[in-house]
Design a protein around this nucleic acid. Sequence first.
DNA 1: CAAGTGAAATGAAAGCTTTTATATTTTCTG
DNA 2: CAGAAAATATAAAAGCTTTCATTTCACTTG
Lengths: 365, 365
Amino acid sequence: MTSKPEGDKKAGRARAGRLKETMKPETRVTMHQIAREAGVSLGTVSHVINGTATVREPLRERVLKAVKMLGYEPNELSRGLRLNRTSIIGMIIPDITNPFFPGVVRGVEDVAYKHQFRLVLCNTDNDPAKEATYLSQLKSFLPAGILIIPSQDSTVTTIASGPPIVCIDRRPDNWKGDMVSVANREGAYKATQHLIEMGHRKIGVIAGPSHLTSAVDRLRGLRQALDHAKLSIAPEYVQEARFDRMSGYTAALRLLQLLPRPTVIFAMSDPTAMGTLLAIRELQLRCPQDVSVMSFDGLEQTELTEPALTAVYQPGYQLGYTAAGLLVERMEGLKAPAKEIVLETELRIRGSVANLNSRRHGTGR
Amino acid sequence: MTSKPEGDKKAGRARAGRLKETMKPETRVTMHQIAREAGVSLGTVSHVINGTATVREPLRERVLKAVKMLGYEPNELSRGLRLNRTSIIGMIIPDITNPFFPGVVRGVEDVAYKHQFRLVLCNTDNDPAKEATYLSQLKSFLPAGILIIPSQDSTVTTIASGPPIVCIDRRPDNWKGDMVSVANREGAYKATQHLIEMGHRKIGVIAGPSHLTSAVDRLRGLRQALDHAKLSIAPEYVQEARFDRMSGYTAALRLLQLLPRPTVIFAMSDPTAMGTLLAIRELQLRCPQDVSVMSFDGLEQTELTEPALTAVYQPGYQLGYTAAGLLVERMEGLKAPAKEIVLETELRIRGSVANLNSRRHGTGR
DNA sequence: CAAGTGAAATGAAAGCTTTTATATTTTCTG
DNA sequence: CAGAAAATATAAAAGCTTTCATTTCACTTG
């Protein structure tokens, strides 16, 4: 209550001189200036700003007013230096240009924003060297956590001392930490089953890079489905390709030249499926009348191709969202043993797979 | 445990590893430790690392050896605190999920990586409040520079004291700083000219949000082309929509219900054009026989729609690459007056625009 | 009313680097 | 070879925040 007039000598001294100097426009406002302006100590300003201790109302208000008046914004560097960690989340992905990843990133970003974290994005192009560079440089910023879609042969390892790390989509060799992925094997299994039900027996496959666990799992799902149906697949009907369009295109050309020609091509990603479509057109074939196509990813854009692609849908946004959520838990101190979260996939039947059962002589050959 | 032939080697490596670990325990290595290890002063270590002064060979070597041995990595926070700027480039975009932006981001990232900068990515969803939040939080990290694709009503302004800022793609009100964009007006002009040449007179337009300069410029280009051809366009044939698919879809439905029905719809972005295609299908119309479509963006994915979309191509990657290049120049101290760089667009003719001149009344085929 | 108490405010240290002014060593000149 | 000049190395300060050990304050209680 005692609204003591500022006979307080310190406050008086503080206020006496500096009024004009605070007008300096070139430099950022610091807590010092706030303290001086409000006539309190540095510690008090910090406590007001962070709520780390109770500060009585009159002081609190003076500080807040000064903050507003001088337009103070905390310096995240000093803060990070002191706290030994910043509000940065590092995210390392192969290539934002691959249409599957923006959704993942967006999922992460939404969680990050909600929790007041900033996202630092790095594209590795699947190059382990670039990944390692990014990883160590990221750590120089003392990030609160790291999310990574590992490159092939990733060397990422979990270190007790460092920030928490969550792996997304692919499991690096020897990775024992947290991991969020989609049910690649099951997805491919269901899709293959569907193909078999539709009467397809000669199945061509454009597999993904064999060093990616996601690609390997998809292939395994396909093989299991074939096994269960007592079907087999000749080696030359499985072509490996990168997850991009050109690579899919050339792989598809190879497959389409085989005799007997496959009745369906299962491309293990949307870009490769799009490349397959291109190859089919180029050879003057029709999809799905001459060759069917099954894809994996199921992004929006494959709804408008001709024909719309039947695909295993994997929830990209959800993937990022979930992984970021787990990371946040870790950053908040969750001590549970490593988690492995697997998201479900969903078969989306559209128009690119022909039903060979209902047609006696459909294939134009 | 089954002992393998290589058992001994592995054990040896493991031991070595453990030894190393004991040498660098929980905390990061600091320059202090390097100095002690090498038997020199702190300043000398700094000079060796940054090359800020000549250090005689024997000392230099001792320092380098210590750095390597202890695995020292500079702390970017202390460094940034001291230097008053970090190696961060902040990038603010509307939404990474819009397929036009990944290319831009990638262009930026490639330049950033080359120059040893890190990229902090922020999605504003075109919300000026979110943009402002991001902007001020970004500045708390003392970034070396900022790239921004401004939201509608962006409040971004250039401040002498702050880091250099380059605007991309859209010009905010009152923006007097650097700017890199594409020739929206010219692109739309050429495209409209093409439509006119192909015999189209009833042109429906799905314009972009009227607060985006890029959208406004495109509309202006279209109007100019019509003017020059002494054609006019009724107001109801111009529908405004956001740059996303659903918005394009509903706008297209409105346009297709007009009488007389437009012979072509000029959608001012790929997503809206895709929505238009959807609407056309939904109404059981055919493209391009019944309605033609012209798009703006010309991303790869629109090559595989049915029909492939004729579009004004804008070089997204190049946009990001150029802007980042300019930003780097500024960060290196370039003092020239504000630059405005405009990249060329290119009309990519594919299959979605019918030639009305050569057909008397085309239906079948 | 003095002492005691818990709460509120303070001052200084710490965190890691760069830089400047100073100290020291080396090299060169006469 | 003395002494000056040049080259190198050093210690200390600065940059901004958080935190911890203290001090000060405002009351309560005996």
